[in-house]
Design a protein around this nucleic acid. Structure first.
Lengths: 189, 189
DNA sequence: CCCTCAATCTTGTCATCGGCAAGATTGAGG
DNA sequence: CCTCAATCTTGCCGATGACAAGATTGAGGG
C-alpha cells in the first residue's frame, strides 16, 4: 500500500524527498548554502525533476515555509492559551525544527502571499495574539504584553541559533527558556 | 587631499564603493539577492576587481559584519550601562542600519573568526553582558536578566524587520520599543 | 626626470547554477 | 491493449563565483 496524503510517482515520492533533502541541507549550511541540482542528485533524479513539483527554487522554499507554519501552529495550539507554555513551545520549535524556522521568518526567500503559507501562518499567529488573554484590565497593555512575550521568545531562539549568547552550549535551552519566561512573565500569572 | 582612514587607488576608493553598493543591495533584496558582478557594474569596474579588496564574496560579507559590529558597539557604549536605553539603542540600530544587522547575526554568511569581526563583536557584547549591572542581589538572576533584555530587544527588532508583527506599520518602532522595555524592565530601575 | 615595482584593475576562462524547452517514459483507467 | 496526462530526462542558455595571467597606474628611489 501507498501513503494516503502524498501521491506516488515514478520516483516513489519525489516531492517529499526533495523537501526532506532541502531541510537537511538547510540544517547543514543555511537556507542559501545549497542548490536545486544538489538536491536532485541526492534524490537520484535529473537536475530538472524538482521543477515539476516546485516551479521554482522559491517555490520549494514556499512549500517549506507552509509546512513549517503548519507544524508551528499545531505546536502552539497545544499550549491552549498558557502564555508561559506558548513561549517555551515557541523556542523549542525553533531549536527542534531549525531548518523550518530559518526559512519561515525570512520573507524575501519565499512567496508570502501563497495561500498555504497564509492560512498556516495566520493559524499560528492567532494563538500568539490571543494568547495573552486578559492579563491586565487595559487592552493596550495586553497588546504590549503579547508583543513583549513574542519578542522574548523569538529573540532568545534567534540568538541561541546564531550562537551569539555567551555560554550558549552550557545549559539545556529549554531550561533557560523556562526560567526566562518565568522571570519576565511569572508575576503576571 | 585624500581621506585618512581609507587608501585611494585608481578607482578612487573601490573598497568603500563596493561595500556601500553591497549595503544598498542588501537593503533592497537581502544578503543573498545580489552578485559580486552586479556590484562591480554599479561601481563601474570589471567583474574581477572586487576580488582584490575582498578575496571572496564571503570576504566582503566579513568586512560588512566587522564594520557593522563597530558601529553597533559605538552605539551601545554610548548608553553607559542604562539597560533601558541599551535596549532601545539595540532596536534603533537594527532598524536604522538594517543591512548591517541582517549580516551580523547570520554566522554562516561570513568568517566569524576574522580578527576585525571578533574584536568589534566582543566590544559590543561586552556592553550587553555587563549592562544589567547589579540589579538583583543574585548574580544568577542578573545573568538571566541580561539574556532576557537582550532577547527582548533582538526579538522585537527581528520580528519588526520580517514584518511578522501585527499592525507593524502603525506606530513608530522607537516608541513601541521604549514602551516594551519599560513594561518588562521598568520596575527594575 | 626617469625607472622600478608593487598595488590595482582587466581580460579570458572554467565549472556550476537556475530556468526553460522539447522529448521520452511510466502507469492508471477505459 | 490503448490512450494520455503526469512525471522525469536531455539539452541548452545566460549568469555567477572563482581563478589565472597580463596590463595599467602611480608613489618613491636613484
Amino acid at each position: 500500500m501507498r501513503q494516503i496524503d502524498q501521491p506516488v510517482y515514478h520516483h516513489g515520492n519525489l516531492r517529499r524527498a526533495i523537501i526532506d533533502a532541502a531541510l537537511e541541507a538547510i540544517g547543514e549550511s543555511g537556507p542559501a548554502g545549497w542548490s536545486l541540482r544538489e538536491l536532485a542528485r541526492r534524490a537520484g533524479v535529473s537536475h530538472a525533476a524538482p521543477a515539476h513539483h516546485f516551479s521554482d527554487k522559491t517555490g520549494l522554499l514556499t512549500a517549506i515555509a507552509a509546512e513549517g507554519f503548519e507544524v508551528f501552529a499545531d505546536v502552539l495550539e497545544r499550549t491552549a492559551g498558557d502564555i508561559l507554555e506558548a513561549g517555551v513551545a515557541y523556542i523549542r520549535f525553533a531549536i527542534d525544527h531549525r531548518p523550518y524556522f530559518e526559512v519561515m521568518f525570512r520573507p524575501e526567500l519565499y512567496r508570502t502571499d501563497d495561500p498555504g503559507v497564509r492560512s498556516a501562518r495566520e493559524r499560528a499567529f492567532h494563538v500568539l495574539v490571543t494568547g495573552a488573554g486578559t492579563i491586565s484590565p487595559n487592552p493596550e497593555q495586553d497588546r504590549l504584553t503579547t508583543i513583549a512575550a513574542w519578542s522574548l521568545a523569538h529573540g532568545f531562539a534567534a540568538l541561541w541559533m546564531s550562537g551569539a549568547l555567551p555560554e550558549s552550549a552550557h545549559d539545556d535551552p529549554e531550561i533557560v527558556a523556562r526560567s526566562l519566561v518565568r522571570l519576565v512573565f511569572g508575576t503576571a500569572r
